[in-house]
């Protein structure tokens, strides 16, 4: 009798617990489903502030991308070629079949692009014909420009050895500039970056440096990530660590082993420190 009584009590407690859990889950689900259609889920791909993907269903239950609920990063690609265009002419990649090298256009994400080259730097004016450029590569800071591009206040790339017009075209400000002074599209920054970082360009072309997604065969259809999708061109090394990549929030850590409240045991160094 006593046994039955205890059993019943345990059951009742479990049942009660279960009910509260289910109720809590339902409560958590309801606002999520209500909010979902309101605004589309956008997740960043490589670094925050560069290329992004908007989540949508390609077919029922098969999204083009899955985003991390913790960090908002792209976690899984259903369609690696979403929103891509052909890369264009790239020396060294002529042997690839037509349409097998794709990139995501960078210009869509650059908010200032439509203004550049039309409003302020339109390439006309007394000092541009013929262009008279400063000789010391130390431009006077223009508050408007520094306000629009915060990285310029403490410009890091090249450590004072390069300046704006080494990379940006002098008269066509919505273009970059290559070794020969010819304009280069913002969608093909590799043609510009390779001017100095030739070893990295070679590795990138061979797929050793940087990121490619799609088909792994060497002549397969791939989306190539261009330089500026991963690196911030104005501050590549990000100061803190010499890896060329901006710090970001990590995804959650794994489940703790059974019976462990935290992972402080991992911080004890197994080798005595001197």
């Amino acid at each position: 009798m006593k046994k039955i009584a205890t059993f019943a009590t345990v059951l009742a407690i479990c049942g009660g617990g279960l009910y509260t859990v289910i109720a809590a889950e339902n409560a958590a689900e309801q606002p999520a489903t209500a909010a979902a259609p309101a605004e589309p889920l956008v997740c960043f791909e490589s670094r925050k502030g560069a290329s992004e993907v908007t989540q949508r269903d390609l077919k029922p239950g098969w999204p083009n991308v899955k985003c991390s609920p913790t960090t908002g990063a792209a976690l899984w690609y259903g369609d690696p070629f979403d929103g891509t265009v052909p890369m264009g002419k790239m020396p060294g990649l002529e042997n690839l079949p037509e349409g097998h090298a794709l990139v995501k256009p960078r210009s869509e994400k650059l908010a200032l692009m439509p203004l550049c080259g039309t409003s302020c730097h339109n390439g006309v004016g007394p000092q541009f014909t013929p262009p008279t450029l400063p000789k010391d590569k130390k431009p006077t800071p223009i508050p408007t420009m520094a306000g629009m591009v915060p990285d310029l206040a403490n410009f890091q790339h090249g450590r004072d050895r390069i300046w704006c017009l080494d990379c940006h075209h002098a008269t066509k400000r919505n273009m970059l500039v290559d070794n020969f002074g010819d304009p280069v599209s913002f969608d093909q920054p590799q043609l510009l970056c390779g001017k100095c970082h030739g070893d990295k360009l070679r590795d990138w072309r061979d797929g050793i440096h940087g990121k490619r997604i799609g088909e792994f065969a060497s002549d397969g259809k791939k989306r190539w990530f261009t330089c500026t999708e991963c690196h911030n061109p104005h501050n590549v090394q990000d100061g803190l660590r010499n890896k060329g990549f901006i710090q970001l929030q990590p995804e959650p850590s794994p489940q703790l082993p059974k019976g462990m409240a935290d992972a402080s045991h991992e911080k004890l160094h197994p080798i005595p420190q001197h």
Partner: peptide, 9 residues
């Protein structure tokens, strides 16, 4: 899948 999401390649 892991190759495709690695943000640093």
């Amino acid at each position: 899948a892991c190759v495709e999401v690695c943000p640093v390649g």
